[in-house]
């Protein structure tokens, strides 16, 4: 029956983006317009740069989460993992600074990356080899990473060594031709991720595993390997975010990254990735992260909302953004 109720055949064009994928960008555009109407300062270059820069951490982590979620997994540990990696990186840099000086910074970045990959691998192997539901497995590691950062800081703060502070600062506060570095980093991460997800065998496998594990298995795909690798990619993304995060406040505390996991998942879902897996939208995720940050920014810039009701209004806007996204799919 479906065959007869046919739409007229469309020409196939490889790079086109259908209306279905435009949802998050429409929502973003609507939000920008509303923001401008509420307060023209919203569109000032400074404010836009600040907000987009701030969204970089969530965006970078959420790009990793796009892989995990597209492959049918879920990672709740990203927030505490980010805090943990931040802590390890700062402690390492402080330890290395007296002997190697500012070379401690690139070394620390490498340490961050390795730590992130290891954390991702840990999550991945617990989920795949241990056959534990991703929700529970990463809930467990979330607690572990959070406890480790609390332990490393004695519950307080570990701050980066003063001698490194100024040298490292540009990684968050610097810019190239006026574009803040965290934005460039997240664009680079998104470009690479989009290539991997849409233009490589791994991306195909990742989405296939999330869409239907059985089909993937019967097609000769190693489901465990694909899933584990998705968690490793997530770990790498968290590490990159942590590298950009450290110079912002120059410190790690037990409250660093608290509830980031929920922001990350929200960004991914607003971006059009299916929470049950089988569909990943890298650029949508980036738009989702920016939308979240814009909403928070608008709450402050507008005078309509009582400080007590901010969270409620944010919730309503997120739901409306999802509805715009849903309707544009029809």
């Amino acid at each position: 029956m479906a065959d007869l109720a046919a739409a007229p055949p469309r020409a196939s064009h490889g790079w086109s983006i259908g209306w279905g994928d435009a949802g998050p960008f429409l929502a973003l555009a609507a939000l920008v317009l509303i923001g401008f109407l509420i307060n023209p300062d919203f569109l000032s270059a400074n404010n836009i740069a600040n907000v987009v820069t701030r969204s970089a951490f969530i965006a970078i982590i959420a790009i990793g989460a796009t892989f995990v979620i597209a492959s049918g997994g879920l990672d709740l540990s990203v927030g505490s993992m980010a805090a943990f990696i931040t802590g390890v990186t700062i402690l390492f840099m402080n330890w290395a600074a007296p002997s190697v000086g500012t070379a401690a910074i690139p070394l620390g970045m490498a340490v961050a990356l390795v730590t992130g990959l290891a954390c991702g691998l840990l999550n991945g192997t617990i989920v795949t080899l241990g056959r534990i539901e991703p929700f529970i497995a990463t809930l467990g590691t979330m607690g572990i990473f959070r406890a480790l950062i609390t332990y490393m800081t004695d519950g307080g703060t570990v701050a980066i060594d003063r001698s490194l502070r100024e040298a490292y600062r540009p990684v968050y506060f610097g810019d190239v031709l006026g574009v803040p570095i965290p934005i460039l980093v997240s664009l680079a991460v998104a470009l690479i991720a989009a290539y991997v997800l849409y233009r490589t065998r791994y991306g195909r496998r990742c989405v296939a595993v999330g869409a239907n594990e059985d089909v993937a298995r019967y097609s000769g795909i190693s489901v465990a390997r694909v899933r584990t690798l998705a968690f490793v990619i997530q770990g790498a993304c968290v590490a990159i975010a942590a590298i950009c995060y450290v110079p912002r406040l120059g410190a790690a505390t037990p409250t660093t990254g608290v509830l980031w996991e929920l922001q990350v998942i929200t960004a991914v879902v607003i971006g059009g990735t299916a929470l049950r897996g089988g569909r990943g939208r890298v650029w949508g995720t980036v738009a989702g992260a920016v939308i979240l940050e814009f909403i928070a920014n608008l709450m402050v810039l507008s005078d309509f909302v009582s400080e007590y009701l901010v969270a409620a209004v944010q919730g309503v806007i997120i739901i409306i953004a999802m509805l715009i996204q849903r309707m544009s799919k029809r």
Binding site: T150, T153, D154, G155, G156, T157, T253, P254, T255
Partner: peptide
């Protein structure tokens, strides 16, 4: 200890 102040209390 879960944030700065309580960490101080513990200390």
């Amino acid at each position: 200890a879960d944030h700065g102040w309580t960490a101080g209390v513990v200390y």
